[in-house]
Design a binder for these strands. Structure first.
Lengths: 351, 351
DNA sequence: ATCACTGGTGGGAGCGCTCCCACAGTACCT
DNA sequence: AGGTACTGTGGGAGCGCTCCCACCAGTGAT
């Protein structure tokens, strides 16, 4: 853990100037070495590195930020209360990917919750102060003012889950449409014929796409799409349960359900059980997310897995590119950088 | 969200200087107003505030940090991989308390994971660069070098869960000893006579205290402490299960178990069930933490609840005091600031 | 020998603040 | 009238970097 032996006189930490003196070079040269500029001779570089090691020099971030007008920090903004953040394995996986991708960088990651109004005001203030070089936005609703604020402040941002087909921000998403198709095609291949669908919150673009995937998978397979087999949910367990009850009432002959999330599926399972339907014997059930819930459900739930960790990594990729492009005067806005990652169906005994 | 209307010429954000010019005062005066100094006349203050609002001025944190040698940020350091952090509701509750207590402050909270060696090296570097004014340490093992590093760098720190009775750092903890006593006394009051104990990791001070509480509760009630009824665990489910099996083999007549954590209790329950013992009929079970596991267990688990959110708040209290004391030359080291909070037994049907 | 260059280097200027000293103004004693 | 003690204020001097321009060899072409 570094040598903290020798120190500058004033009892404080050594400065660039002191390193320069010790190495017998100028300030500029030390700065070049520290920042890995190639325009330094090997001998000089070695001398500077020795001085750095001897003094235990660590650059002063504040000074660097002031002089270079950058912070070397990016924020992961979660517009939800802490509680949801922790309960959803989604976030933890994403954070893992983000952390991994960031680990060979100098960038520092800040985690900022903006669930309450108060927290959002603080965040706005924080961003206005340009305390981060870029922002990672997760689970943003279509009408959130945050993306606009960021654009206005000219702060690079990447969003996970575009807000619409016309998303202007760089984004990373999984293939919601394709994932939904996989789920429905799987059910059809198992011989199911009356496949119902409980949607997610339809103000979330990804949820819309899943519903579209459901429709297209059915019609492409030569089935007609029966609107009576579609019931809106809201990604919650209660919503799933309520929707399932409604579907059973309307179409008691259904033999399969594609739920827009695992949590929704858990609610649906509850309603099915109360109605005396067996899973998968009477009704096959497929969820979305492949979360812990899916593995622990009774019976284990077939689900569509998203590569969340990879999504985290790709978001960092995009953001770092954005940040780097911002340094000189880069041309932006034209090339929409939207990444879409493939999903995978994980079959279990619920279907 | 602030007015971002008028701007300084250079296209950039307005500076102190510009605010001063606009308000017709000097730089020093604006600085005083911004920092809430009382040595400013009301008229001047009003003029400055107006200028600030008109220009949408936001102080440059880097400049402030450089000039004032502080960062207005503190770090919550978690020496565990992300995964554990997210799975334990402990952390989420603590974070809630910390966030709440920090919300009427200018302080920014950074969440830093230091589970791997690589991450720890980065953290050391980060701390050496003095990028935070203080550190909150959670779940630190007795032999962790982190506290020493912090002391060496002279960075204020507060620890949750002292490393030993001789802890030198300010700390916040719940009353592990008392909590254990509550658990055992509860079991005795229910008529149990052969109360076993599965310990936590005994290199964790809190776990030791729980075991001491178990012993003292028994002997104070006039029971002899039988070492054959004590089996070491490690806070994990497997550990709990293994320990329970060992106990059953050694003392098949036991009629109650106090487990050092809910997770341990979950493991014990498994082993008891496999041995054909009914809970609570044959064996009563009490856990520790009152986590979600306790509520969802079958049967629901009696457990000892710690006021984790409050602990988070108190940690911030202590840390902010430390940080403030550090500004002038305060006398430290003498008054050990150790906070211990009371626990509460939550009885459920497992006992 | 002269004139380009080019890789390597030193150091001034400045980033936007806070700190602190100096000073004007007023008030209240001797 | 002359001190003494404030309160409120302006502005110089940094904080420790990065940026950039100037400069000094050396090298090869003319």
């Amino acid at each position: 853990m570094a040598s903290h032996g020798a120190r500058g006189r004033s009892g404080g930490r050594p400065t660039l100037e002191e390193v320069a003196a010790r190495a017998g070079v100028g300030r500029g040269t030390v700065s070049r070495v520290i920042n890995g500029s190639p325009r330094v001779s090997d001998a000089t570089r070695a001398a500077v590195e020795a001085a750095v090691a001897e003094l235990g020099y660590v650059p002063n971030t504040a000074a660097r930020a002031l002089a270079a007008n950058r912070t070397d920090a990016i924020a992961l903004v979660v517009p939800e209360p802490e509680t949801r953040f922790f309960s959803e394995p989604y976030f933890s996986d994403m954070l893992k990917g983000v952390g991994a991708e960031l680990s060979d960088t100098e960038m520092q990651l800040l985690l900022i919750f903006a669930g309450s109004d108060k927290e959002r005001r603080r965040l706005a203030q924080y961003l206005a102060a340009h305390r981060v070089d870029g922002v990672l936005l997760v689970s943003v609703h279509a009408d959130d003012p945050l993306p606009d604020l960021l654009a206005q402040l000219d702060i690079p941002a990447v969003i996970s889950g575009p807000r619409s087909a016309a998303e202007t921000l760089p984004s990373v998403d999984s293939d919601n449409y394709g994932g939904a198709r996989q789920a429905v095609e799987h059910l059809l291949s198992r011989g199911r014929r009356r496949v119902a669908h409980i949607t997610g919150r339809l103000d979330v673009y990804g949820a819309q796409r899943r519903t579209e995937g459901y429709r297209d998978a059915l019609s492409d397979a030569g089935h007609e799409v029966d609107d009576a087999l579609i019931e809106p949910g809201d990604f919650t367990e209660e919503g799933g349960s309520r929707a399932m009850a409604a579907l059973l009432e309307r179409r008691p002959d259904l033999d399969a359900v594609f739920a827009a999330s695992d949590v929704t599926a858990a609610g649906a399972r509850q309603a099915l059980r109360e109605a005396g339907r067996r899973i998968p014997d009477d009704v096959a059930l497929v969820g979305y997310d492949d979360s812990a819930i899916a593995r622990h459900m009774e019976p284990p739930l077939t689900s569509v897995r998203q590569p969340i960790e990879v999504m985290g990594r790709r978001m960092i990729d995009l953001l770092l590119t954005e940040v780097a492009d911002r340094r000189p005067l880069a041309s932006r806005g034209l090339d929409r950088r939207q990444v879409v990652l493939a999903t995978e169906l994980v079959p279990r005994s619920s279907s």
